[in-house]
Design a binder for these strands. Structure first.
Length: 364
DNA sequence: AATACGGGGCC
DNA sequence: GGCCCAGTATT
């Protein structure tokens, strides 16, 4: 027992030493040198970054994080913001329930907690959009709590370090216990970020750079098997194909007809062009009967978009209409301002198929 | 325990 | 074209 504890302490030391030498400068992070001077991470920044980073890479998050902080410098600003503006700012980042929950969470913290985040995992997890991972991460990084931070990166690192044969997600409790055993009392936040950085840069899904790893002398997968084959995972089923149509109406003032999707479900609360439902039926052939306006609809090709659980092929139709009559749920948006709308990527693809220059920097 | 929920980068 | 991600909420 004493032996295991000692080995764990040594591994933790090696990781933190690696982190001190290789940490990355990220907008929401307090670097180890700054931390030693007494700098503390702002819980608002930590929370905002962690929510954005859910299933999303650092590269994609950077610009959004900076934009959000500029638009809403404090949690109270975000709580007071217009929900539609938040959706617009989030457009393109994906998983839009995160944006809706972000707003709800800001309102809860501002309204019920005096603008201060709870400083325990339990308190944090009670807030909208904060689950196991994010609660543990905020508790560790912003409040110096010794919590077990387990995300996709850490799952990979810990599964290789201990050559865990149990497939995910069943292996999570074992992984959590292994992570907690390595988590130190004094720098739990740095430890968590070090584990995630290690997974992102060294212990990568493919072709891990084991020779550069601080765990190279104790990694069981490296010693006995092929590290790349961890973590073991249950088999996944294949995505079905769904078909539909999208209608891009352009009026005589060069505006496109847009409407808002329902607040819940797929792309909830986001903006779209009118279309048919997305089903497995051959809607591409019947879609012309679902046209939102009586007009000379011209078929201008199809676009494909892959969602998490299905693949979508949309036939795109375009028509020039004489007058801009606003429907019950929609509005006419000038092409020049389309970029600022809450349009998810699939809708931008559809519009770009009908109007190739719609999202270009300059257009005539 | 399984499913719904985006998007982009990588090979 | 398939795989992977700094996951959460719902059922």
């Amino acid at each position: 027992m004493m032996h295991d504890t000692q080995k764990a302490a040594e591994a933790t030391f090696l990781l933190l030493d690696w982190y001190d030498r290789h940490h990355r400068d990220l907008p929401w992070r307090v670097s180890p040198p700054m931390a030693r001077k007494g700098a503390v991470a702002d819980p608002y920044h930590v929370w905002l970054s962690e929510v954005m980073l859910q299933q999303t890479t650092v590269q994609a998050v950077r610009a959004y994080f900076n934009k959000f902080l500029k638009l809403w410098p404090t949690i109270d600003d975000l709580a007071a913001a217009d929900a539609e503006d938040v959706m617009k700012a989030w457009a393109g980042l994906g998983y839009y329930a995160r944006a809706r929950n972000l707003k709800k969470c800001a309102e809860a913290v501002a309204g019920e907690h005096g603008g201060h985040f709870p400083n325990t995992e339990e308190g944090l997890k009670a807030l909208p959009g904060i689950g196991d991972y994010t609660a543990a991460a905020i508790a560790a990084i912003a409040f110096n709590r010794r919590s077990a931070v387990l995300d996709g990166n850490v799952e990979r690192v810990i599964s290789r370090l201990h050559a865990i044969e149990t497939p995910l997600p069943a292996a999570k409790p074992e992984m959590r216990a292994r992570v907690l055993a390595l988590t130190p009392e004094d720098r739990p936040g740095d430890f968590a970020q070090a584990m995630m950085d290690l997974g992102a840069t060294i212990c990568t899904p493919k072709r891990p750079a084991c020779s550069l790893c601080p765990f190279r002398s104790s990694c069981l997968a490296l010693a006995t098997a092929d590290p790349e084959t961890f973590p073991r995972k249950a088999e996944k089923k294949q995505k079905p194909l769904r078909l539909g149509a999208a209608f891009v109406a352009i009026d005589n003032s060069n505006a496109v007809y847009l409407q808002k999707r329902a607040d819940t479900g797929l792309l909830g609360g986001m903006t779209e062009v009118p279309g048919t439902g997305w089903t497995a039926r051959r809607d591409g052939e019947t879609s012309i009967y679902a046209q939102p306006f009586a007009a000379r609809w011209e078929h201008c090709g199809a676009i494909t978009h892959v969602f998490t659980h299905f693949e979508l092929r949309l036939s795109v139709y375009r028509a020039n209409v004489q007058r801009a009559e606003t429907g019950a749920n929609g509005w006419w948006e000038p092409i020049a301002s389309l970029k600022a709308q809450a349009l998810p990527t699939v809708m931008k693809k559809a519009i770009a198929q009908a109007i190739p220059n719609a999202f270009k920097a300059e257009r005539s």
